[in-house]
Each structure stands twice: as C-alpha cells, then as structure tokens.
Computed example of a mutant assay.
Amino acid sequence: MLKEPKGWAFAIGFSIAILIAGCTSVDYRKLATGQLSGSLFVMWVGEGNSSGDGNFLFVPDPPLVFHRADTAAPGGTIQPGLMYTDGGSIPKIAQVFKGLSPWGYAPAYMIHDWVFIAHHCIVDGSTEKRFDQVRGVDFAESAAILGEAIKALIGTRQVAPNDVAPGAITTAVGSVVAKNLWDEKGACKSLQVSARDVAAAEAAIPGSTTKAHNLRTFRVPETAVPTVPGVRQAKIVARLSF
C-alpha cells in the first residue's frame, strides 16, 4: 500500500510559494546547465490528491543520471533510486498554464525528489551508501539542482523553452513553504517503498529491483523479492529515454 508522498519536486501550494518566496537567493536565470542521461520509468501505484495525477513509483531501470555543470559541487552526480513520486506536485489550478504539468519536467522532478528523500533519511540518521551522493546538499543547493536539471531538458530540446515556468518552479522549491518541508524530521520511514510495491515493480520489469546497476542505488529488502502474494504485474504506460 502506498505511503502518502509529500510531492517534494514542487512544494505544496504553488501560488503561496511564489507569493512568499525569498527563502533562498537562487536565480534560475543565473544557473548553469546540467546534463541528464538514461531513462525514466514510473508505474502507477495509487490515487492522487489535489496536486499531481496520482501516486507513482519511480523505477531506475535503466538508471536516470544527472550531472551538475560543476561535478565537484554538492550533488555533483545524482542517480535516483526506487522511490515514490507524484511528479511535480502542482495544484490543479496552476496546471492550466504552459510548462506547469506535473510531468512536464519529469526527469528533473525525479532528481529533486531523490534529493529530498535522501536528505530526510540522512537527517534521521541513515548511513546508507545510496544517499552518499547527496550528503552535503543544503536547501539552496536542492533548488539549484532542480533548476539545472530543467535547463538540461531545455538545452537538449527535450522540452520547449518557457519564459515563465522554469523560473517559477525554481522559486517555489526555494520558498519558505518548501523550506518547512525540508526541515521536517522523522519523515524517512514513511518514504520507504513497501515490499508490495517493490514486488509490483519486479513483476512489471523482471530484474529491475535486483540488477547490479540498481543495487548501487537502493537496497531491496530480502522479503520483497521476487513476489508478494496477490501482486499483479503492472502495465507499462510509457518510457522516456534520452
């Protein structure tokens, strides 16, 4: 059963976030352009709420990799692991505007989701190696990483240029609203992928939770592989490679 995700990629309350932004000095226009490679695959695992189009499981098969322009900077290379996501948690009222689809900048949202999840687990005392790639990333860096990832998508023409959305999104994830989410403690446990959903991913793509390249990113509980009674194979809706 899905544990309710927080929608890290686009902090709750887009409009409010814009109005009270100013928690960080991140300016999207001044950010460098990162580099994205690999594949993005998500499977539906539950109903959505007022933002996003449902709750999904990001499955790193093959892995999605992001390199910052300065690979020596905090979070210089990020490879997300198996995790819950709802894309960009953009309220329905804002989704009518160009560039503000919950999945419009999906690869960038996955990178930012992973930074938030890793941060919460690190704060809660996790020493797992899968989180080492983002140790040292502070709140301002997390917003910058999302902006750099969006620029990567635009730079490679995966998405069309937009004069408003990228800057608005970067501002929102650097706002006071997002900072409050960042500062939460005790969230790591609720973000762990359930054995049932790990099994569903394995049923959809055999080997996706056990391949060597994935084991470097996340650890699969032994009780979760290969199946859980009653789990049906998920249907692949779409896969994006770039």
Rank of each mutant, 00 (worst) to 15 (best):
Y28G: 03
A9G: 03
R196N: 13
L40G: 12
Y109N: 11
C188P: 00
A224W: 02
G174A: 04
A201Y: 01
V159H: 09
V193M: 02
V198E: 13
Q95F: 09
F56P: 06
V159Q: 06
L215A: 11
A17M: 06
F14C: 09
A140V: 03
T24L: 02
L181P: 09
R232Y: 12
K235R: 15
K189Q: 13
V65K: 07
D86I: 15
K6G: 12
G207N: 00
L215G: 09
R29F: 05
A204G: 12
I78A: 07
L240M: 09
L36W: 01
D70M: 00
V220F: 05
T85E: 04
P226G: 01
A9V: 06
R135S: 06
W8Y: 15
L240H: 12
R219L: 14
A149W: 08
G147K: 07
E148P: 06
R29T: 12
P74Q: 06
E4I: 15
R157V: 12
A168V: 13
S25K: 10
L2I: 15
R135H: 05
V173G: 05
A203D: 09
C121Y: 08
L2F: 14
D138K: 00
G230L: 02
A149L: 02
D124K: 04
G46Q: 01
L82M: 06
T223Q: 11
T156Q: 10
F97L: 15
D183M: 11
F14W: 05
P74I: 08
Q35R: 14
F58G: 00
T85K: 07
N55M: 15
G75N: 05
I117H: 13
